[in-house]
Design a binder for these strands. Sequence first.
DNA 1: CCGCATCCGATTGGATACTG
DNA 2: CAGTATCCAATCGGATGCGG
Lengths: 139, 139
Amino acid sequence: MPDGRGDWDGELVPDERGRAARPEPDCPVEIALAAVAGRWTTLVLRELMHGPHSYSDLCERLPDISAKVLAERLRVLEHRGLLTHERLRGFPVRTRYQLTPAGQALRPLLIELYRTGVAVDTALGQRTVATADAGRASR
Amino acid sequence: MPDGRGDWDGELVPDERGRAARPEPDCPVEIALAAVAGRWTTLVLRELMHGPHSYSDLCERLPDISAKVLAERLRVLEHRGLLTHERLRGFPVRTRYQLTPAGQALRPLLIELYRTGVAVDTALGQRTVATADAGRASR
DNA sequence: CCGCATCCGATTGGATACTG
DNA sequence: CAGTATCCAATCGGATGCGG
C-alpha cells in the first residue's frame, strides 16, 4: 500500500485526497468545512439559499450580526467563489449578493448538518436514559 | 406567521429550531458544526470511525498533531458525549478512546462534507471555464 | 504510555465610529 | 444604502517541558 495502510473505509474516504495525515487545504472535507466555517456563516448562507439579497436585506434578516462580520463573511464567500456581488445603479444604491453554482452546492451540506444535529441530539437523549452516568466524566 | 416570515424552505429549515436569527447553541446546525469544529477534529473522528484507538495509536496515525491539541480534541468530544475513554490496566498503561452512538451519528456528515467538497471543487472548475467564455463574450 | 502546565504569537469576533 | 477603520478582549493552536 502506498501509504502503508490498507484499512481505509471506502465510504468515508473514497479517494486519495481523504487520506491526508494532516489538515490539507485541498482535501474535500477541508474545502467544505472552510466554506461553512466561522460564526454566522451558515446563517448568511441560509438566507442566500432562497435567492439573492442586498446587504440591508441580510442586515434585516440577521439583526444581530455586526457590519464588520457580515462584510467579512461576504468577502470570504466571494473570494472562495461561492457568491458574487453586483452593484445596482439607482438611488439609494443597492448591492445584490447571489450564490454561484458552487455556493448552491452547499445546500445538501446544510441539510445534512441539520439532520446530523438532530441525530446527535437524539442519540444523546437515548444515552442519558440508557447509561445514565456515562457522560459525567468532565468537570 | 409567528416570526413574520412565511418564506421558509422546508427542506433547509424543517422546524422551528432552524429559524433562529442568530447562532443558537441548540440549533441542530450549530450542534453539528460544534461537533466537527476545530483543526484536526475531523481527522480524529475519521480515525475513530473505524474502531477504538489508544492515545498513541492516534499519535501515530496523525503524526503532526501536538499532544495538547489531541488531548484537547478528545476532551471536548468526550464532553459533548461523542466519545468515551477507558483506562486499560497493565503496563504500559493504555487508554481506549471509542465513539459513542452519538459520535457514530457523525459518519454521514463526514461523508457529506467530502462529497460537498468535491462538488464545490467541480462547480468552481466549471465556473472557471464558463465565465472564461462569458467574460470574453460580455466584456 | 498518557497526558497536563505554561508560554506565546496569531486569529477571531464584537463595539464603535466614520465615509462614499 | 453599503460598507471601511480602528481598537480590544477572548480564543486558538503550536512548541516545549514536566509529571503520573
